[in-house]
Write a protein that binds this DNA or RNA. Sequence first.
RNA 1: GUCCCUGUAGUUCAACGGAUAGAACAUCAGCCUUCUAAGCUGAAUAUCGAGGUUCGAUUCCUCGCGGGGACACCA
Length: 566
Amino acid sequence: MDYTIIKVKQQIKEAVQKALGQEIDQKHIEIGVPPEKDMGDLAIPCFYFAKLLRLSPNRIAEELKNKIRPVGFIESANNAGPYLNIILNKKVLAQKVLNEISKKGEKFGSLKSDKEKIMIEYSNPNTHKEFHIGHSRNAILGASLVNVYKFAGKKVIPVNYIGDIGSHVAKCLWALEKFHKDEPLPENKGKYLGGIYGEAVRRIDENTELKKETDEVQQKLESGDKYWMALWKKTKAWSMDELKEIYKLLNAKFDKIFFESEVEKPGKKIVAELMERGIAEKSQGAVVINLEKYNLRTLLLLKSDGSSLYSTKELALAQLKFDKYKIDKSIVIVDNRQGFYFQQFFKTLEIMGFDKKMEHIPYEFVTLKDGAMSSRSGNIVPFEDFFEKVVELAKAETQKRHQDWNGEKISDVSQKIALSAIKFNMIKTNNSNIIVFDVEEALSFDGFTGPYLQYTISRINSILKKESPKGEIDFAKLENLLEKELILKASNFPEIIAQCQKENQPSILAKYLFELAKLFSNYYQNIPILKSEQETKKARLFLISNIRQVLINGISLLGIDVLEEM
RNA sequence: GUCCCUGUAGUUCAACGGAUAGAACAUCAGCCUUCUAAGCUGAAUAUCGAGGUUCGAUUCCUCGCGGGGACACCA
């Protein structure tokens, strides 16, 4: 990375090293931020130097203050106890950072590309089931991670692995045939199927005798019964149509979609090989791999009736990924409840001699105030229902503000506002925290939300529409402290991208964007732009157009479509 | 029982081992003859407990307490 912020820090490190002597390792020079703005722009704790040089940290800070001379980005330094605070040169910083953003445009923040080819598997829904808000967390998180990885210079192949076979399909089709045959079909057939699946689960719950009937359906499906296969194909298409619609809304894209149905047979073959090689063994009629010596208990690879399990199929999927797509690494985004399974699964691959880089990125699931969502209890919040609700609310708010807009524009803007609210809401929480879904909160458009970011961009657009920056910029005109703060924050963007990718945590980006937008809002409120003196105005317009660029780059990475106005 | 996540303000969340623990929502008090008030400013309120490591612990380690989840025929 040759970004300005990196150069600034490098310059500071060199200055410190020069002042204290070569025995100071630059790696140990930490650069942070002071607690108060008026103390300085960057801060260096001096404890490490103190230990090395056998002097008090306060003394070293003082010495550094006296030795550091203004050069390049560094304007001056102040000591405060054991800390050295650096004040950056406003003009130089503004010039370098703003020109950099302006020049790189939508590429600003992107990192040097490396050769590693990574497959990211995410979403992984089942057909014949309802797609609820919990599934949307995975799709939203995955889509943004794919964006972030690409922006961070990785070669990414986003894929989806869909559960199109198994007992859930049998249950759904059984209920469809038994209770809904010849019924007129609604427009959204995928959602209709999901409802029927829920009904099937509840009926079987009430009368366990019915399980026999669904088992029969499953056997027919597995044996390739023509009638049931035809029904399966037809209904699978319904689910896929619905999923495609949802993915369009969520900006979730896939280069390849794998289906469980295509890896079932190859999976069984692998299990048979494992048996021959003595890696897997029979236990109570089923095939298992004993992982007790790794403290991972036992993983079931095949059911006692010979039918496949998730693990069976996934063995084949892993091979398919590396053999056919020539990837260096495979990442799977699946909720944390499968964490133990993945430990077992990866260990199994290792024992098999399948020595590849595979990683499970866990995240916590979405629950409701009164407990987890389940088809059994019927307390599912379907994504589409929730989405409609948010759109409706956005519409009401938009109409209130823009009586002159036509229906089409209102609808379009409202939909985008709704989606930005939903996506941001799912991303703003750290992956390792459970989201307790609260409709009230999810419907909010105020504060730390997607619409707030959109609104900030709209306000910038509104100014730039009236006048855009032209000609030579006098960066000395950006002398306000709020301006310096904004510029410094904007300069941090590439570092945020790096961190976000490294930690698989888009919430870091969400938080950063909010902070940047917040700084702008404050600036906007207090500093007139269009009404300022000519040269100052030019500089300020240039500043805000670049702040907008950073906001747009960041929001886009979250998978959110940027609005022109709202 | 073993393993994973988690415990911070009334609520939902932040805080590479660093200075006075930050936001948002809700509450209260202000700000629209000024570039979009979906905004801005201010007030008030918090680290589950006990040890340990460290110059320094919300963060790391140990133990305890509380919440959620996973652990053989679901995915």
